[in-house]
Amino acid sequence: MSNRIDQLFRERDKEILSIYITAGYPGINDTPRLLRALQEHGADMVEIGIPFSDPLADGPVIQQSSQLALQNGITLDLLFNQLKEIRKSVNIPLVMMGYLNPVLQMGVERFLSRCRDTGIDGVIVPDLPPAEYESHYLELFRSYGIYNSLLVTPHTDDTRIRQIAALSEGFLYLVAASSTTGARTSVGDQQRDYFQRLKMMKLQVPGLIGFGISNRPTFLTACKYARGAIIGSAFIEALGAENSLSIEERVERFMGEIRGKIPA
């Protein structure tokens, strides 16, 4: 079977929207329900964040959701158990995003095997360096058919972008600004240059822009330069906002705003 991520990029040309969620947040058992709601309301892909005690690349919003999820009692093992039946109701691509240490403790091979058995399509591990991935894990990922999407930033030089893009499967994660997640940046000249530079490189692997994408205007700007974008912190904030909406209603409202069906 071909990977669902490839299928998505074949079938959908532009404005691909990937949403990041924190597993076990807001409630420990909310993840399957959230995935169904996101699919129903127009998410093209979901990144399921594996909570970690020390998320170095994350800003305050995802730090707090991770901490709450851990307090709720989520573990990687429990997450896989919760997702056992997920492919009966959800068919959009699912990606696991997490730091290396919890994956190492489970064992990389066991992790990949559970990903495959659960129907997970890809993985993002920000603190696994490309060279280390290539020399230690690439073959293992391939043998399980799990994609690894790597990151590039505005400070990554062209040669390295090509190297990383060549290793990256499914999509290349284009970090919009040198920042932790959730920093609200507008798209400035420097970023435009970077996006333009990427576009000119005509990389084979498609790109999705993430970090700082928070609403319809920033989503649309990102879509001018890449096949789509990833929204994390802004969605986590919408999930945690104090109001009486159900999870499904929060998802519907948020997705409606991003997709332009509901004015923000």
């Binding site: 790597l150 990151l151 930033t153 970090v175």
Partner: peptide
């Protein structure tokens, strides 16, 4: 040892 860092810190 090694350098297990996100790409943002690489430069």
């Amino acid at each position: 040892g090694g350098a297990y860092i996100p790409e943002m810190l690489y430069p």
